Simulated assay, not measured.
Amino acid sequence: MTEETSARGAAAGGGPGARPEGRWRTRGHIPFPLWLCIVVVYPVASLLFRLRYRHLERIPVRGPVLLVANHVSVLDPLACARLVFDRGRIPHFLAKETVFKGLAGTILRAAGQIPVARYSSTARGSLDAARADLQAGNLVVIYPEGSVTRDPAWWPMQARTGAAHLALTTDAVVVPVAQFGPQRVHDYHTKKLHLRLRTPTDYLVGEPIDLSALRAEVRAGRPLDTPLLRETTDLMMTRVRHQLAELRGEPAPAAVHPGPGHPRRDGIAGSAA
């Protein structure tokens, strides 16, 4: 386990403290609304979390990336944004539509974040926006569970299939990420905020998932039906669960906790809260 500073050096292939390849230039032009987000998020994440990364170098510094992560807290985007930024990328999150209200919502939209109207027909437009973002070569963060896990022990719950749509209809590198720690600051289950500085927060970045065979089937005409989307979703989330087990040093339970409510048949996913 390495701290955030030495992890950035390891990502570069150099010694501790070295900058990862392209840390600044790969971020490209940063518009003013995004700078506003960075000015808020970066120091807050640094104060709240003592971030510890494993294999940060597995996140490509260029090209389209779909980062698939488990969801343990409403504060996940703060810590994950710092993770991605430390790798020299700009994260674009799919987040629930209620976050995009007022001035803050205007800034988030201008900063490239993507609202999701869950359980509605307009959710498909969110996937289209995320797909366009990936096709433009950006990095998109998605939480396939669609909401903070309801599992009492913080293991991933049943995921929706929106992430699978994106993974199968783009050429993005699909990177599974396990995280554990933000729930110690905000416990979604009890709705309690436990403000403390530098809470240990761990990330394990997995090897990219090879979806070439399934993508070839889709290009050959296989429909994006429920069995295919569920197969792809389970493949991604199994990787995340195994990484989380490694991160926590304990085996994942055999059963997967069910998600809340009754998801739409097309399984639109991806909110950041």
Rank of each mutant, 00 (worst) to 15 (best):
A7R: 13
R8Q: 13
G13P: 04
R25Y: 12
T26P: 00
R27P: 03
G28F: 02
I30M: 07
F32P: 11
P33T: 00
V40T: 07
Y42E: 15
Y53P: 06
R54N: 10
R54T: 09
I59F: 12
V61G: 13
R62S: 14
P64Y: 02
V65N: 03
A69P: 03
N70T: 00
V72N: 09
D76P: 07
P77K: 03
L78M: 08
P91Q: 09
P91R: 05
K96I: 00
E97Y: 05
V99S: 07
T106R: 07
T106P: 01
L108R: 04
A111H: 12
A111T: 03
P115F: 11
A117E: 15
R118S: 10
R118W: 02
Y119V: 00
S120L: 00
D128R: 14
A129S: 10
A129M: 09
L134E: 04
L134A: 00
Q135E: 15
A136D: 07
L139D: 06
P144V: 04
T149A: 03
T149H: 12
R150N: 14
A153N: 04
W155F: 09
Q158H: 11
G162Y: 10
A164V: 03
A164F: 05
A167Q: 04
L168M: 06
P176S: 14
F180W: 15
G181D: 12
Q183R: 12
V185W: 06
V185N: 11
H186S: 01
H186M: 10
T190Y: 00
K191V: 11
L193W: 14
H194E: 09
H194Q: 09
L197D: 04
P208T: 12
S212R: 14
L214H: 10
A216L: 15
P223G: 08
L224P: 06
T226V: 06
P227G: 02
L229E: 00
T238D: 03
H242C: 13
H242L: 13
H242T: 13
Q243L: 15
E246N: 15
P253V: 01
G267M: 07
A272C: 09
